[in-house]
Design a protein around this nucleic acid. Structure first.
Length: 626
RNA sequence: GGGGUGGUAGUUAAGUUGGUUAUAACGCCGGCCUGUCACGCCGGAGGCCGCGGGUUCGAGUCCCGUCCACCCCGCCA
């Protein structure tokens, strides 16, 4: 029988002891966070998941026989990250308190110590503040996770999970599971494929979301479903995207959009209250979050997830430019002409003109050199350039290539549209709509950070929630030359738009919604299409034949004809929620074992090559990558 | 698929116009030290300068290629 663990059980975690515990005999287990050998005494900071306690090894500690002397001998050899157990007595530090530790008013005088395990010198220090690069930390992730910031972050995840589960249970939701190995369904995110050994040449897909199954739960009558569930998407990664991530997935029957919003707003308020101690109802007194039509988000902010912690809105100028026939600006003339001739239509992707106004008091913070750098910034995003103009008192434009040729009429119209006055800086983008929107949205964010309107990362103590609502059901695919589903083909169109399905699909709005927080999409969902007749018209608008629809989604179409209740739902990105709650800079900082941007795991070296035998069993032949 | 930034000791970084033995801090190892808590003092070890090729009398430095990590665009209903 080992003395420690078998006989001496841990009595406390390392943040538990206070002055009131004076003279108590305790047993602590943990890691050597640091050691200071003074020849006579050895001081060890002992760390476990809860905190740090200072242990003193004094060979002359009286009243315990020879044991303290032996413990001191062992302690002299201790090194960083050795795993040890200590039996000792709590002693008050009196006036010698360490104010930097919650346990700073006490220390444990060691009577007995055991080394459970030595440690090699770790590749980096297990410290709260660390300048070691992420690559190294990912390679030794378990050491990174041993650090207090990660211990806190993963605890936040735990709290979110607990609060969410309790909330939905109280609201009458059932936590139901859905398959991970599913049938591949086309459209949307790329699926990871899993070879089916028992069905030669066939594949499962890893579920990109439980979407179809949660709808089937509604058809099955479960009425209110939720799940905290892993999803998998084989797409390019970003700081807010991982190939494997967790969603808080929700679906409800007999509800409209307001019902879904109400439930989710309740969840968010509860999470903020219980995890952060922040009462969102001081910001949103009725507990409801503001809403913005998709069209306004795109027009004013250039994307569907605007960060409303700051202003710097865009203004659309395309109609002004067209009305003025280009207004003397050489680049704009062809755009105006194409609209005039009908080559461009306002309901199809075309070229557009937008402006961003930087108010004088902010513009004065930007030197001309810095504005030149902005041009490099936007070029990196596909822009051809960054036309600018400084507005002077009389409405004149200076420092601008546009100023030379633009007609006074168009200049005045733009100045008025942008609401520009003396000293304001106008930044223009024109060209293909998708590029202009991307560039302008990113330019706005970039300026917001540069001008100190929002921090480089993190929430800055500000929580701006927003529902983006009423987007179009379809979007035009330039390359394919046809309409495609903007969300998925099972989103319910607005009733007053159903007639447009056949005549003017671009104008069909739908019951889809995104929940946005500080410029991050943290959730999205829709009211589903449960009417087979309307469903058929949607497929027709998409150019999907009955036969094709049945082959791809047959089981769901069958279900919709067998008593499907009206239903809708939403999925919230649990990792993003944790990231924003904890002020982390990246999803990788809130996911215990994340992948790199290329989808590799630097610790385990996944994905890896498998043996020819394994491949043969799966009937797979690997072609050398080109 | 495209654009950008970076890779030098265990870690983080410096390294001039191409020129002697590639620096520093922290960490590590040895010694000393009874009150430290970023302990202190003395001494020491430690390098495939990401990898491959080229230019050159000579390359961490210049050129070409390549790998890895990060950020962005495309992509992500």
């Amino acid at each position: 029988m080992a003395r420690f663990i078998d006989e001496l059980k841990r009595t406390h975690y390392c943040n538990a002891l206070r002055a009131a515990d004076e003279r108590r005999e305790v047993v602590l287990f943990g890691w050597v966070a640091s050691y200071r050998d003074h020849g006579g005494c050895v001081f060890v900071d002992l760390r476990d998941r809860e905190g740090i306690t200072q242990i003193v090894f004094d060979p002359d500690l009286s009243g315990h026989g020879e044991a303290p002397r032996q413990a001191h001998e062992i302690a002299r050899a201790l090194r960083s990250e050795w795993v040890i157990g200590v039996r000792g007595v709590v002693v008050s530090r009196g006036a010698n308190t360490n104010p930097r530790l919650p346990t700073g008013e006490i220390e444990v005088h060691a009577v007995e110590v055991t080394v459970f395990n030595k440690s090699e010198t770790p590749p980096f220090e297990i410290a709260d503040d660390l300048d070691t690069g992420e690559e190294k930390r990912l390679q030794y992730r378990y050491l990174d996770l041993r650090r207090a910031p990660f211990q806190r972050t993963l605890r936040v995840r735990h709290r979110i999970n607990q609060v969410v589960r309790r909330y939905f249970d109280e609201q009458g939701f059932l936590e139901l599971e859905t398959p991970i190995l599913v049938k591949y369904t086309p459209g949307g995110a790329r699926n990871f494929l899993v070879p089916a050994r028992t069905a030669a040449g066939k594949f499962y897909a890893l579920a990109e979301s439980p979407q179809l199954f949660k709808q089937l739960y509604m058809v099955a009558g479960f009425d209110r479903y939720f799940q905290i569930v892993k999803c998998f998407r084989d797409e390019a990664l970003r700081l807010d995207r991982q190939p494997e991530f967790t969603q808080i997935d929700v679906e409800m029957s007999f509800v409209n959009q307001d019902d879904v919003f109400g439930v989710m707003e309740g969840m968010i308020v509860k999470v903020w209250k219980e995890v952060l101690g922040v009462d969102l109802t001081t910001l949103y007194p009725d507990g409801r979050f503001p809403r913005m039509p998709f069209e306004e988000a795109m027009g004013t902010y250039g994307n569907d997830k605007p960060d409303l912690r700051f202003g710097l809105p865009h203004a659309e100028l395309t109609d002004l430019v067209v009305d003025h026939g280009g207004g003397g600006v050489p680049f704009w003339k062809p755009i105006a002409e194409k609209f005039a001739s009908g080559a461009y239509r306002r309901d199809l992707p075309a070229e557009i003109v937008k402006v961003l106004r930087v108010p004088a008091e902010l513009a004065s913070q930007l030197s001309r050199t810095e504005v030149d750098k902005l041009e490099d910034f936007v070029k990196g995003m596909g822009a051809k350039g960054l036309a600018r103009a400084k507005v002077e008192g009389g409405g004149a434009w200076v420092q601008s290539p546009l100023a030379k040729t633009i007609t006074p009429e168009l200049r005045a119209a733009i100045t008025a549209r942008a609401g520009a006055g003396d000293g304001d800086l106008l930044l223009f983008q024109f060209g293909r709509e998708a590029v202009v929107q991307t560039v302008m949205a990113n330019l706005r964010l970039h300026l917001g950070k540069r001008l100190g309107l929002i921090p480089e990362s993190g929430h800055g103590g500000r929580w701006n929630f927003l529902w983006v609502v009423n987007p179009p059901l379809f979007e035009y695919d330039d390359e394919a030359g046809r309409w495609v589903a903007a969300h998925h083909a099972f989103t319910r169109p607005h009733d007053d738009c159903v007639e447009l399905l056949d005549t003017d699909p671009g104008k069909v709005l739908c019951w889809r919604y995104d929940l946005v927080l500080n410029g991050f999409e943290i959730g999205g969902g829709s009211i589903r299409l449960h009417d087979p007749a309307v469903q058929a018209r949607v497929f027709r608008a998409l150019g999907i034949s009955d036969e094709e629809a049945h082959r791809k989604f047959g089981f769901l179409l069958d279900a919709l004809r067998l008593g499907a209740p009206p239903h809708g739902g939403i999925a919230v990105g649990m990792d993003r929620l944790a990231m924003l709650l904890s002020g982390a800079e990246s999803l990788r900082d809130v996911i215990p074992f994340p992948k790199t941007q290329k989808g590799t795991d630097l610790m385990t070296d996944a994905p890896n090559v498998v043996s020819p035998e394994q491949l043969a069993e799966l009937n797979i032949r690997v072609v050398q990558p080109s």
